[in-house]
Write a protein that binds this DNA or RNA. Structure first.
Lengths: 314, 314
DNA sequence: TCATTTTGTTGCCGAAAAGGCAACGGTCCG
DNA sequence: CGGACCGTTGCCTTTTCGGCAACAAAATGA
């Protein structure tokens, strides 16, 4: 089974061996056959791919580029066939996603449902964690895709997409702050604050926001689940600090109110899609990553604060 | 000219049209020919690529994956041919690099020389700038590759590689501090400091380091060129704060001394190689990026398998 | 309901491409 | 000089590919 032109395979082997005859031997064909493919390739491309030396062939500059491309294609091909083999055999390809809790409530389930319809045989493995562990899972290959908040730039990780999320105060509709038109951090001082646990707090947008101000909140509780935080807020126990995505569903049903913080030094809440830098993604994963990207873009269509760019680029 | 198997081209067109005959028409071949290629492909892969409907063909899950891959290959192919065309025509392919000043002294020239030997027809366009402008150039496509320090995670940018650089105090060998075994930030207070200009200072490792301490340096000068900073330091006018890469050559010749700062809250100096997230790199660029990556890894051979945590981006 | 259209599919045959074999003209090395 | 190795070319066979016509099945239209 081979998806690439035979001439490309021949080319790769000749480049590897540095000799037509040796390559021909390894390919189990006559040297003349290999030679003709190479000559034809060069003719069609209009560029010599090898320099002819008395002792054999050496890659030309153009040939080096070509070789690089072909090797990449061969990797793609292997991966493709592997995935197809999975589909034929066990009947499913596996996509492993490591994500923060925020997405597991609404966005990810919706997305995966759509994906499942397009690719019925794909199986998902979802793990929820904090940014640090997510990055580690992606780096070690335990996960194919990672979604995390405000990650540090890191070796071994490729950041495929970043979206700014609205970050602000969250409260029940009957909470006094819900009446106010604009809310600033200092306004929240006088109400009990529902905070994340120390573990989740570390490195969070909230921590970085507080670091830039000298406001002391009056903590009511520290929870290690966003679900808990939301429940407490819904029960009118105090103010929480979350991003819009965390409470997408509650916003729809009017169970919670979101008030963007109007302070100047508000830290950015950046949702980032990432994958292992050194691996080219398995196909199913690449497709899902694509959809995830679009979904992320759909969250916050406003395109400000980022690097400006003329529209219209594929 | 075509580098991919004809069956893949046929497949793509059939998938696009949803019908053998329509595809055949657009391909200017008989429907039977197209059909045979598809059947052969499916036979060899062992997986049906289409479901047969009374009105035509629709992609199966496996077919969708295949289509995705083929489209990617077609993009690669176009790009490949374009690059080859450049080589054949004007005689050179162009690689545009936007970099910080640190690399232009030693590392980049060395690298480019080696690259030039492998690919004699490649031409370079080098622009030096600050992290912010570098990211912008990469995002807009003005540059193919960017090398910058401590970049914020940004949409449209893919970070291909990140390396920690040693950051510390730099002085002439005859400077009093050069005698000391360990140097801390507070030790530098009493000597004139050679600082970068406000423009360069903004967002720099030095700024972030100072922000974590309450030490006031006694500035002697603010320069907008690292070259100037180094010259002043060499002339024993004071202490500078640079990373190892900045003074690679001077270290070799013993003209300057590097003292890593031993403070606790020292900020990381992270050198990052990046490219436009949405573009697959032109081939020559990809190859150069690869070499750059290896060179970057060579700088700081300590293999920090751990993921560094660096909170607080501007 | 029946004819028509549209679909994918298959057998047959000629055309084109690829491969095998042997020979030729080089260069290098002993 | 003679062998060893190289890429290349001419001649021939084998394989593959494509076009044409015909077929069965399903949907469409009157």
């Amino acid at each position: 089974m081979q998806l690439l032109l035979t001439s490309l395979r021949y080319f790769e082997e000749v480049a590897r061996q540095g000799s037509l005859r040796k390559a021909a031997e390894r390919l189990h064909v006559a040297a003349s056959a290999v030679n003709r493919q190479i000559l034809k390739l060069e003719g069609e491309l209009g560029v010599p791919l090898f320099e002819r030396l008395p002792r054999g062939l050496r890659l030309s500059p153009a040939g080096e580029l070509m070789l690089y491309q072909i090797r990449q294609w061969q990797r793609d091909e292997r991966q493709m066939l592997e995935t197809l083999g999975d589909i034929r055999g066990t009947g499913c390809a596996e996509v492993r996603i490591a994500t923060i809790e925020s997405l597991t409530d609404q966005l990810l389930p919706t997305l995966l449902r759509g994906f499942k319809e397009r690719f019925p045989r794909v199986r998902f493995v979802l793990t929820t964690g904090l940014t640090e562990t997510i990055l580690e899972q992606v780096a070690t290959g335990e996960a194919d895709i990672g979604i995390c908040m405000n990650p540090p730039v890191t070796r071994r990780i490729r950041f495929d997409q970043a979206v700014e999320l609205g970050f602000g105060a969250v409260m029940a509709p009957s909470h006094p702050l819900a009446e106010k038109e604009t809310v600033r951090l200092r306004d929240c001082r006088h109400y009990p604050a529902i905070l994340p646990s120390a573990e989740m707090f570390h490195g969070s947008t909230l921590e970085r926001t507080l670091a830039h101000s000298d406001i002391d909140l009056t903590p009511l509780a520290g929870c290690n689940r966003i679900l808990t935080i939301k429940s407490l807020a819904r029960a009118r126990l105090g103010v929480a600090f979350l991003n819009k995505l965390d409470i997408a569903r509650e916003l729809e049903h009017g169970e919670l109110v979101f008030k963007p913080l109007q302070d100047r030094n508000i830290a950015k809440a950046q949702l980032v899609l990432c994958s292992a830098a050194e691996r080219s993604l398995p196909l199913a994963v690449a497709v899902l990553a694509e959809e995830l990207r679009e979904a992320l873009l759909g969250i916050e269509p406003k395109d400000d604060g980022d690097i400006p760019r003329a529209p219209g680029d594929a």
